[in-house]
């Protein structure tokens, strides 16, 4: 799956300006506790979280997460988007909630992190 496929699947909108739409994404993880994400999330994953502060980008970057999905059209701070652009991490917004996003991505073939 590519980031392009994911955006289409969840009716998403890209919030970061520079983005590699063809970047490959294999796995998915949904959690708002950062230590769980550090411990369990694999590289080349999509991460779904309602957290929108700067540290989300630090965590994503440290564990090589490809893209972050923010559910329920929650606003994302500009500093977070700027940092994500700098780190090459795509942030996607969607009106769907976490449960719906996970369901759609699972159906589409995104696997749980091993």
């Amino acid at each position: 799956m590519t980031i392009r496929d994911i955006i289409e699947c969840i009716d998403g909108k890209i919030l970061t300006s520079e983005c590699d739409m063809e970047q490959n994404v294999e796995y998915g993880y949904a959690c708002d506790l950062l230590s769980h994400v550090m411990a369990k999330c694999s590289p080349n994953s999509v991460w779904i979280t309602v957290q929108t502060h700067l540290n989300v980008v630090a965590v994503a970057s440290l564990v090589d997460i490809a893209c972050i999905i923010i559910p329920e059209s929650i606003d994302v701070e500009k500093e977070t988007l700027d940092r994500a652009e700098k780190e090459g991490i795509t942030i996607i917004s969607t009106g769907l909630n976490t449960f719906e996003i996970c369901g759609r991505l699972y159906d589409m073939g995104i696997s749980p992190c091993p």
Partner: peptide, 15 residues
């Protein structure tokens, strides 16, 4: 509130 404080910091380090 920021998603820290899961109580996994030291155990993650050990792992």
């Amino acid at each position: 509130e920021m998603g820290f404080g899961a109580g996994m910091g030291l155990s993650n380090m050990k792992r």
